[in-house]
Simulated assay, not measured.
Amino acid sequence: MALKVREIPDLMDKNKITLVAGRNGLERDIFSVGIADYEFLDGFDYSVEDEFEPDCFVISSLIFAQGHPEKILYALKILFHSGVSGLAFKEALFQKLPPEAISFANANDFPIFSFRKDVHSEDFIFQITEAVLKDDHQLLSEENLELMIQKRLSNYDLQKITRGISLILKRYAMAAYITSMDSMNIGRILRSVYMSKQIRSKAIMARYGDGIFLIVTGQAKDEKQFDILMKNVLESCPIDADKISIYQSSIHSAHEELDDCIRESYHAYTASAASGKKFESYSKIGTYSYLIPLLESTALESFSKRISDAIADKKELLETAEAFILKGGEVAAAAAECGCHLNTIRYRLGRIREITGMEEMTDFEFYEALSTAIKVRCLKDL
């Protein structure tokens, strides 16, 4: 569930924060936190759309209203119409708000808190950010991500996640599973996303295993735009781009098919690990797209086991079979991989046909059957 405005006092010493208006708006959701200090000063190039997001909780010292308390009402109206969840101001320049500001907040159920001047605004912002991050961690927990990967998450639970995470999903979404050759400071990376206003309206990250899921969202089903968006997000994070591998999903409906995004990106990673190839996107993993979901199928396991077990104790034949399949059926490439002559590979393939009972099969049928067995074996070995 999203952080609620009513939970704000629980994030700090309750003796240092006071609700001053908008009591009926305490059930508003909070998905991010922002600052409003200089945005309302005369001459400031201000854009509501750029500065304040819907469901954002705003912290302010009210410095923009110093000597001009009438500006507070003006600011409140802009914040309210921007969809801001609420406001907390520091009791430094103002201990109380003008009556007209209080009346506006109460009339529009817009919550306003005051907090003592010995409270650091940065600490307050950090506490809210950590609380939102904690909620996202619960919704995008490794357990829930695992259920998405296994396609075992109900539509009801998926809707709870898509509506509860801090990222306000647009029409479409894409996911990428990211791994690194070096250990990543995942906590630092996740926190950087939440602290960046430019990123948090477009993307969200979640830890899974030794990697991170990155989810980005957009209004149009445009692959180029999503690639640009994903690149921009990664460039804004403390990640060494030269040391990471990225496995992308296709673009799906954000609210109804977010689990497909997660599953596809992770399957691209799994296919890459099993094959020794680098599949940067799910669309390129070929037969792995159905082999991975069927990995626990009794029929598939029985078929694959019958072939692979027949040559499992014959090291040269097994190595040849793996090289032949993982090199796409190219005899020359398999020979180079095994460090032997082409005729040696052809002889060993003939022996595999005999031992597995596939002598009567055409070359295509033989490759198809052997490919299934070897790929399943490699997947099982992960």
Rank of each mutant, 00 (worst) to 15 (best):
I204H: 00
S183Q: 14
F104M: 09
I186L: 02
P111R: 05
A173Y: 02
I186K: 15
E130N: 07
E122F: 07
Y208H: 07
F124A: 04
I189H: 02
M148E: 02
S192C: 04
F110T: 03
I199Y: 02
V132F: 03
I161C: 09
K202E: 13
R116I: 10
M181G: 11
L140K: 01
D157E: 15
R152W: 03
G187W: 03
T129I: 10
N106G: 09
R163K: 14
V132K: 00
K197I: 10
D135L: 00
S121P: 05
D118E: 13
L147A: 09
I186C: 00
M205N: 03
Q138D: 13
F113Y: 14
R171I: 04
S154G: 09
L158A: 07
I125D: 02
D123M: 09
K160M: 08
A105W: 08
Y177R: 03
T162Y: 08
G164V: 06
K134M: 06
I112T: 03
L153P: 05
Q127Y: 12
R152L: 12
N155T: 13
V119N: 01
K170A: 06
T179R: 13
L139N: 10
L158F: 08
R200H: 08
I168T: 15
K134L: 15
Q159A: 11
A131N: 05
E143S: 14
D157V: 02
R207A: 15
K134H: 10
L140F: 04
S196K: 09
A203V: 04
I178N: 07
Q198T: 15
R171S: 15
R200E: 11
L153E: 07
I112V: 15
R188D: 12
M148F: 04
M184I: 12
L139K: 08
F113L: 08
K160D: 11
Q159N: 12
A175G: 13
D182V: 11
M195K: 13
S183K: 13
I125E: 08
